[in-house]
Design a protein around this nucleic acid. Structure first.
Lengths: 162, 162
DNA sequence: TAGAAACAGGACTTTTTTAGTACGATAAAG
DNA sequence: CTTTATCGTACTAAAAAAGTCCTGTTTCTA
């Protein structure tokens, strides 16, 4: 089954939680908006802390969240939730969206790139998938922190998942 | 990187080869069209025989090729190449196309299926991807047996790959 | 200024998935 | 009845993903 990695599911769950946090923040919309620590987010989402820390680091490196170090540091969304697409999140977590390995970036591994007539078709397929994923925004995925992915440990997480 | 398994690439290559074989067949279009053995297809595509055998078995079970046993047996396409979509092939080789595990089939593993508001969105995404893949037919991928996937052993395979 | 809280980065281990192989059984042709 | 094939399944090995941990750096607070 063509599917996303678990870390990607976690990422969407975590970012969803960050949306909640931003909305609840008193300094909402302001520059000095609150940030949430990995520890806190772990407790809210039920995802184990070491794992969620890894996910957050990846998201930070990908520019989807901004981080602040030191005590009282943490993470917050880099952009409003309706400007972050699912496609972006997947790209950061799973790498570029390309259904086949035979893609522009590593054409040197393909001994017949120049003459291969199928690459345009794969390109069209990839583009179609990409726009499908870019059309759905994080905002659309909201209301619940960890649905759509499934780990069992979400069970005891929270009640606003409905 | 979201990508297909190698076996799926092989499958497309093999089915492409079967298209060639059917076209070259004297009994082309007839009921008694020739069939190609796994051994022969392996030699034509450069894919190792045990592996290609496995692929063909999967394709046969999925109904994309028909098989005939016994001496002079082998495989042939179950449908014309322009009626076989890439999506079908992927579905047979990699299972149903569903970008998340949280899909109708195994909703019992999700403890909040009923109330989860994101499943419809994932459904839309899945559908978009599915139609992108169903829109491309095997016919469109033709002209060369093993391009678009890349294994190095395609190098010494054949000359009509251009 | 010392200590605590928190992220950064990387190395490491474990688990899961995928790929590849092998073998005994069955079926058809000559 | 021998040869050429597929069928089904089980097994092994290799690759990828997930998860964990440690060491260092930054920043706030007391």
């Amino acid at each position: 089954m063509i599917k996303l990695g678990k870390l990607t599911d976690y990422a969407i769950a975590v970012m969803g939680q960050l949306v909640h946090e931003a909305a609840d923040s008193p300094a909402h919309d302001k520059e000095g908006a609150m940030s949430s620590s990995a520890h806190y987010l772990a407790s809210r989402t039920g995802i184990p802390e070491p794992t969620i820390a890894k996910v957050l680091k990846m998201l930070a490196k990908g520019g989807l969240v901004t981080s602040m170090r030191g005590a009282a540091g943490g993470y917050r969304l880099a952009k409003p939730a309706d400007q972050i697409s699912i496609g972006e999140i997947i790209a950061v977590m799973d790498g570029p969206i390309a259904i086949v390995g035979c893609v522009e970036e590593d054409k040197e591994h393909c001994n017949m790139w120049e003459t291969c007539p199928t690459k345009e078709n794969w390109g069209r397929v990839n583009d179609a998938i990409k726009s499908a994923l870019d059309g759905v925004k994080l905002q659309d995925m909201l209301s619940t922190p960890a649905c759509g992915n499934v780990p069992d440990f979400t069970k005891d997480v929270d009640a606003d998942c409905a």
